[in-house]
Simulated scan of single mutants.
Amino acid sequence: MTDFADFVALTIADEREDRIHIQLNRPEVRNAIDQQMVDELHAVCAELERNPKILILSGTEVKGKGIFASGADIAQLRERRRDDALAGINSTIFDRIAKLPLPVIAALDGFALGGGAELAYAADFRIGTAELKMGQPETGLGIMAAAGATWRLKELVGEPLAKEILLAGKILDGQECLKVGLITELVSADKLIDAAHALADKIGEQDLLAVRITKAVFHTPREVHPLVDTLAQGMLFESEAKFDRMQAFLDKREARRKAREDQSK
Score class of each variant (00 low, 15 high):
residue 177 C to K: 03
residue 188 S to C: 08
residue 8 V to Y: 03
residue 88 G to T: 15
residue 237 F to H: 11
residue 183 I to E: 01
residue 157 V to K: 03
residue 195 A to K: 01
residue 111 F to Q: 10
residue 176 E to T: 07
residue 110 G to S: 13
residue 64 G to F: 10
residue 151 W to F: 15
residue 174 G to Y: 00
residue 94 F to Y: 12
residue 209 L to Y: 09
residue 142 G to F: 06
residue 44 V to P: 00
residue 109 D to K: 04
residue 87 A to R: 14
residue 101 P to M: 05
residue 86 L to C: 04
residue 241 A to D: 14
residue 221 P to W: 11
residue 194 D to C: 05
residue 246 M to F: 10
residue 237 F to P: 04
residue 119 L to S: 03
residue 204 G to W: 07
residue 261 E to M: 14
residue 10 L to R: 00
residue 21 H to P: 03
residue 111 F to M: 10
residue 228 V to G: 03
residue 10 L to K: 03
residue 46 A to R: 14
residue 203 I to D: 09
residue 210 A to M: 14
residue 31 N to H: 09
residue 7 F to E: 08
residue 89 I to C: 05
residue 197 H to Y: 15
residue 141 L to W: 14
residue 218 F to S: 15
residue 110 G to D: 02
residue 96 R to W: 10
residue 189 A to G: 10
residue 167 L to V: 15
residue 190 D to S: 09
residue 226 P to A: 14
residue 261 E to I: 15
residue 183 I to H: 02
residue 22 I to Y: 01
residue 71 G to W: 00
residue 122 A to T: 01
residue 48 L to H: 10
residue 191 K to I: 02
residue 113 L to D: 00
residue 231 L to W: 14
residue 67 I to N: 01
residue 8 V to H: 06
residue 58 S to G: 11
residue 202 K to W: 10
residue 113 L to I: 15
residue 207 D to Q: 07
residue 202 K to H: 09
residue 78 R to I: 10
